[in-house]
Amino acid sequence: MIANFLIGLREGLEAVLIVVLLLAYLRKTNRQHLVPRIMVGVAVAVVVSLAFGALLTFGPRGLTFEAQEAIGGSLSIIAVGFVTWMIFWMARTSRSLASNLHHQVDAAADGSAWVLVVVAALSVGREGLETALFIWAAARATGETWQPIVGAAAGLVIAVVVGTLIHRGALRVNLSVFFTWTAAALIIVAAGVLAYGIHDLQEARFLPGLNNLAFDVSASIPPSSWYGTLLKGIFNFSPATTWLQAIAWVAYVVPVSFLYVRGLRGRSRSTGSVKTAAHA
């Protein structure tokens, strides 16, 4: 539940900030009459994201167990790919996001009425589809039912409230720090989803090694215990983990964390050089 809250909060805040940037630019350029087009685009993105989530939830039912596990495992791995791309994309383009959106608004404002609707729908919809897929995959990994939905919904609600307060100038948030730490946490969450996706593919008999366990600490950390449930809900930790799952977890966390930290250091050095040049 906590992991899904984090996903909902981060992804929701990204989507809300895009809307805030679009609305602020329209207000700054005296184009308030275009605001309804932005709202229509946002509404379309929300409906499509909810429909996608419903399709993921109810679509595989009625299939054989192996088919369900194969679909679930494949989509979990795809979800990890999307969230990894999102982490690095946001870190790389966060500084130019506003200017890119402004250029898109300028181009859309000179076109037909539907162009700006499409801009808003695509900008927000990308985040919505990624959120739906990753929350669905995380919910499968924890084996819970309504708890992930509640956690994600709470995160989305808080994101909307924070975005509204930022838009009205009533709240200032260090978004750089927020996205830096949540990205680091999501790397661990994504690794757990990846490991569970591997397990699904093993149960579908698509991958070998289902009975070859790297460790089994079920006696020390019972899955039904409160701490077992907590570890499962936050980190997707499985007390009985196969060798392939363990290898996949390490093979994901180590290089992704290294590249992410290296990217952060590179941007810090770049910022320091710019500031030094500005004062020179």
Rank of each mutant, 00 (worst) to 15 (best):
M1P: 11
M1F: 12
I2G: 08
I2A: 11
F5A: 02
L6T: 04
I7M: 10
R10W: 03
L13M: 01
E14N: 02
A15E: 02
V16W: 02
V20S: 00
L21C: 11
L26V: 04
K28S: 15
N30D: 15
R31S: 14
L34F: 14
R37D: 10
V40A: 11
G41F: 06
A45N: 04
L56I: 08
T57M: 13
F58E: 11
F58R: 10
G59F: 10
R61Q: 15
L63H: 09
L63Q: 08
A67W: 13
I71C: 07
I71T: 06
G73K: 00
S74Q: 10
I77T: 05
F82A: 05
T84M: 06
T84I: 06
I87W: 01
M90F: 08
A91C: 10
A91S: 10
S96K: 13
S96W: 13
H102C: 08
A108P: 05
A109G: 13
W114Q: 15
L116Y: 07
V118K: 03
V119S: 03
A120Q: 03
A120P: 04
E127K: 03
G128E: 01
L133Y: 01
I135T: 01
A138P: 05
E144M: 02
P148S: 03
I149N: 11
V150C: 08
G151Y: 05
G151R: 04
A152D: 09
A153W: 08
V157G: 11
I158L: 15
V161R: 07
V162C: 12
G163S: 12
L165P: 09
G169H: 11
L171V: 07
R172W: 10
V177S: 14
F178P: 10
F178C: 13
T180H: 06
T182K: 12
L186F: 15
I188Q: 07
A190Q: 07
G192S: 12
L194H: 11
Y196T: 06
H199Y: 12
H199Q: 14
R205L: 15
N211C: 14
N212V: 07
L213H: 15
A214E: 00
F215P: 05
S218A: 13
A219C: 13
S220W: 13
S224D: 14
Y227P: 14
L230N: 05
L231G: 07
G233H: 08
G233V: 08
I234E: 05
F237N: 00
P239R: 02
A240H: 03
T241W: 02
L244Y: 03
Q245D: 01
A248H: 00
W249A: 03
V253W: 01
V254A: 03
V254S: 03
P255H: 06
V256E: 04
L259V: 09
Y260W: 05
L264K: 04
S270L: 11
T271K: 14
S273P: 11
V274K: 08
K275V: 12
A278L: 07
H279F: 09
A280K: 09
A280R: 10
